[in-house]
Nucleic acid binder design. Structure first.
Lengths: 212, 212
DNA sequence: GGCAAAAGTATACCTGGTGCAGAAATGCCC
DNA sequence: GGGCATTTCTGCACCAGGTATACTTTTGCC
């Protein structure tokens, strides 16, 4: 039918990837247009020209149709910590990574005002089950970061875990604040200086404590 | 039928409360015995001698049958902060409250090895949807604590929020660690000194930072 | 006692998700 | 190209959580 683009994997594998993409695209499109809870998986399956049973062979739940694209952010912080230079502190590495994300307008920092990103954010926030999945990612990020701190910074397990949950909590809160401001109409470029200042403030709190 | 125990509220209200308790008790009993996911709401309704529709009039979801008892912990930290003496710092108030919880073996600190508590903990941890609800409580606690800090400690909103998420994250991690040790067989009394030391460590990290 | 409002019930239905048996497509060897 | 095992897909029946509707029972109160 079509040209052989990526001939490395057999026809079977290519078709599977195309089917997967078709299902995901149909789902995102319908969800963005009508809202996550307003669209049934049966409608998604029909739009993707696939049976409901096949849809669930590719994605274990309705929520996964949305969040599978964000799944690798779960281990992002842990990878940053593991990949840091030997002289750098974990906290400095995470801070540098977050500041880089801000300057690149990485959607995960919340500092992105593209209409598609805004619509996706609003769609997720409107669906409690999707918010719950995001919280689940947060937990996964905590676990992964704790392991990375424990293994590469020679910290006791509890200290690593306590540090990890604080770091993840602060970064998440900073991102949420940015996203909230974008949703309220601020522009990414206009918000950028404030976002940087707030990030510096947040990481300073992490480094030097809340006081007393 | 039975004696009039609490005659303050009308018969209607008393009956409602009894029905509510009957449903909740039947649910907890069945869930503890067979596991949360193994018991259907229809079975709970039957055991409570109530129709399924009535059950859902009292509890909006299956998960609420379990977590409604824990709901007021959501605002516990915020209340502690608001009720502190005018000279005390919020962090000191929270630390004192947590240490008091440890010495009282408050189940929410994780430091309680009563079989019923252990079984309940295991039951919740075995059910992903219940774990997700607990995470939701965490978010609620963060919001409430952030508001309390903002209003009573004269902190900017972002600072209050960043402090709140750190405090909640640390306290939650400490509690989870204790609960995990209880589940692994440690006794509450044996664990108590270590739990206190770990709590001191966690709150010291909050007060003085992770360093660098 | 009688009546309006509240609470409870039975039933049918919708949606997410799974089990099962069979049809269709694919890879591969001839 | 023709067969054949394996994988994939499909239709269908089914389960559980939850809701809408329309109806009956119970309660509060005059």
């Amino acid at each position: 039918m079509s040209d052989v683009d990526e001939a490395k994997l057999g026809l079977r594998e290519r078709k599977k990837q195309r089917t997967r993409a078709a299902i995901s695209d149909a789902a995102i499109g319908l969800f963005l247009e009508h809202g996550f809870s307003q669209v049934s998986v049966a409608q998604v399956a029909e739009a993707a020209e696939v049976s409901k049973r096949t849809l669930f062979a590719y994605f274990p739940s309705k929520e996964d149709l949305v969040v599978h694209r964000l799944a690798d952010h779960e281990t992002e912080l842990a990878r940053v910590v593991r990949a840091r230079g030997n002289d750098a502190s974990p906290l400095a590495a995470v801070r540098a990574h977050f500041l880089a994300g801000l300057s690149e307008r990485d959607p995960i920092t919340g500092l992105n005002d593209h209409p598609q990103v805004l619509r996706l954010t609003r769609m997720i926030l409107d669906a409690p089950s999707l918010v719950a999945r995001m919280e689940g990612f947060k937990s996964g990020a905590e676990r992964a970061l704790a392991a990375a701190l424990h293994e590469t910074a020679d910290l006791p397990e509890l200290t690593a875990r306590l540090g990890a949950v604080q770091i993840v909590a602060v970064q998440w809160a900073l991102s949420q604040d940015n996203a909230h401001r974008m949703a309220a109409g601020e522009t990414a470029d206009g918000r950028y200086p404030g976002a940087v200042a707030d990030a510096q403030h947040g990481f300073a709190l992490l480094a030097h404590g809340l006081g007393e």
